[in-house]
């Protein structure tokens, strides 16, 4: 592994950041200026979002997030550039899904898909179709949804679940799943489409799964879990056994979709409360509870702030301003949290 990623902010540095913040603030509301800044830093002219923390690769997740932000900022030109690049470079599979990763040298080297990337892209297309009254986007979205339903939506233990990619996530008779791939507000939008009932079922099962997959002292969901045929969820073998960069998106998507039950938000809020006044760790091992020496990034803190508001735990999380080199993932998460809060009518 080469240079350390910018996602790794030492605890000390983050704590210093907390001290200078005079009062609780959002990182920034998401507006036109925020989008222009984002596009300048991460959107290349040809239409791909660069994951600055990961050697400048691009992936379907990043394209999806980029399209969502462009749509929210009403920047149709950027949206089209992003979608065009995605079609030309990632949608090279026969089944209508996007290859998950593109590298500056070599292009697509692994043709597997990442289901959350496909979901984000389809959701952005549906939102774009609404905003700009463009049926072509809706048609494209419908094709992706059809491909997803055929390839990665499966039944296990009476639940409808989402494989993280088409290939390689069946281990014996168990499935390896990623709870943060349930983009709840997207699933609701899909369910409203003609023939979208399966997406409603997927969302329902997602809630059940999140109730089953609570581990350790904080009862947090793991980044990767294993679901056996009897419906037992365990922290997946073969992955780092932790709550971390993936699963932090779980409360974001739940909140965005209008869920309010403290039961679902408390684990994250309790983690934030436990580390109030110091730095919230970026990862927590499960079920052991060992925390990393790496602090949650600005984007993750933005998610925690939203989560604590909903869980009504009484603690407010302070979100420091972006650092000068805030990476792609942190910045994206912060903007997503802001979009979610704005759509819910929270004070930014």
């Amino acid at each position: 592994m080469t240079a350390p990623s910018r996602r790794e902010v030492l605890i000390g540095a983050a704590a210093a950041g907390l001290l200078v913040a005079a009062k609780p603030v959002w990182a920034k509301p998401f507006d036109g200026a925020a989008w222009r800044d984002y596009a300048q830093r991460f959107l290349l002219p040809e239409g791909r979002i660069v994951d600055s923390g990961n050697k400048g690769v691009s992936h379907s997740e990043g394209q999806g997030y980029g399209m969502l932000l462009a749509e929210a900022a009403d920047d149709r030109a950027a949206f089209d550039r992003l979608w065009g690049w995605t079609q030309r470079n990632l949608m090279v599979r026969e089944d209508g899904l996007a290859a998950w990763r593109w590298q500056p040298e070599g292009g697509v080297t692994d043709r597997n898909n990442a289901s959350d990337g496909d979901i984000l892209i389809a959701w952005a297309l549906l939102r774009g179709a609404e905003r700009w009254k463009a049926e072509a986007y809706r048609t494209a979205a419908a094709a992706i949804l059809k491909a997803l339903a055929a390839a990665v939506v499966v039944e296990q233990a009476g639940m409808t679940v989402l494989l993280p990619g088409r290939d390689g996530f069946r281990k014996g008779d168990s499935l390896v799943l990623n709870p943060s791939y349930w983009v709840f507000p997207a699933l609701r939008a899909f369910a409203a489409q003609p023939g979208g009932a399966v997406w409603g079922k997927l969302a329902d099962s997602g809630l059940v799964l999140l109730s089953k997959a609570r581990f350790g002292g904080f009862q947090l969901p793991p980044d990767w879990l294993s679901l056996d045929p009897q419906g037992n969820a365990t922290v997946a073998e073969g992955f780092r056994k932790q709550y971390g960069y993936d699963a932090v998106r779980v409360p974001l998507y739940l909140a965005w979709d209008g869920y309010r039950d403290p039961y679902y938000f408390r684990p994250f809020a309790m983690l934030a409360a436990r580390y109030a006044g110091t730095a919230i760790p970026a990862t927590v091992s499960l079920p052991g509870g060992t925390t990393t020496q790496v602090a949650a990034s600005v984007g993750m803190l933005a998610v925690y702030r939203l989560t604590c508001l909903i869980a009504s735990t009484g603690n407010a999380v302070t979100v420091p301003p972006f650092g000068p080199n805030e990476d792609y993932y942190s910045t994206t998460l912060a903007h997503m949290a802001a979009l979610a809060a704005q759509s819910l009518g929270f004070e930014p």
């Binding site: 809630l207 109730s211 309010r260 039950d261």
Partner: peptide
């Protein structure tokens, strides 16, 4: 079916805040 009960309650709370 405790997980299913939790899910149903959360869904109800979303619909009826």
């Amino acid at each position: 079916k405790f997980a299913e009960a939790r899910a149903a309650i959360a869904e109800q709370r979303r619909k009826t805040p």
